[in-house]
């Protein structure tokens, strides 16, 4: 799999979340996504970027435009050095929240992606990677 473009953006403020959305949109268009796929990946990115900010205390978003054969896709990695998630299964349950949100961020982002991977260590941080293919 070839990586055509690779950018990392900081997530420190809610303005950064907006910036991540905008950049994901640019990359989704570059990947040739139609309007529904664009909307899905931008929405997933928005949920995960907000989680990174609200629960992880900030972190980074890595945006990769990737190509696998003839297919282009977008791979997004959100990483923080926050408290980590003690119970991943619980955190992926619809409606479960520790932060006063709707509890749809993780589970919703997973549904909106073709690939979803989460790695979290309590006391060290969380890394979530999603991918969506054209």
């Amino acid at each position: 799999m070839a990586v055509l473009k690779d950018d990392t953006l900081p997530i420190r403020t809610s303005e950064d979340v907006v910036r991540v959305r905008k950049e994901v949109r640019v990359q989704a268009i570059a990947a040739g996504f139609g309007i529904v796929d664009q909307t899905k990946i931008i929405t997933a990115a928005s949920e995960l970027a907000r989680n990174t900010l609200d629960y992880g205390g900030g972190g980074t978003a890595r945006l990769e435009l990737v190509q696998n054969g003839a297919r282009k896709g977008l791979r997004l990695t959100f990483e923080d050095k926050g408290p980590g998630i003690p119970d991943l299964q619980l955190a992926l349950t619809d409606g479960y929240t520790t932060g006063g949100g709707l509890g749809l961020g993780l589970s919703g982002a997973k549904r909106l992606s073709n690939e979803f991977d989460i790695h979290s260590v309590v006391g060290e941080g969380t890394r979530i990677t999603i991918a969506r293919w054209k």
């Binding site: 309007i35 529904v36 899905k40 929405t43 949920e47 709707l102 919703g108």
Partner: peptide
């Protein structure tokens, strides 16, 4: 609401 937004919201669970 744009159609793509409606589709995405439902998939998001909202």
């Amino acid at each position: 609401m744009r159609p793509a937004v409606a589709i995405t919201l439902v998939e998001l669970g909202l």
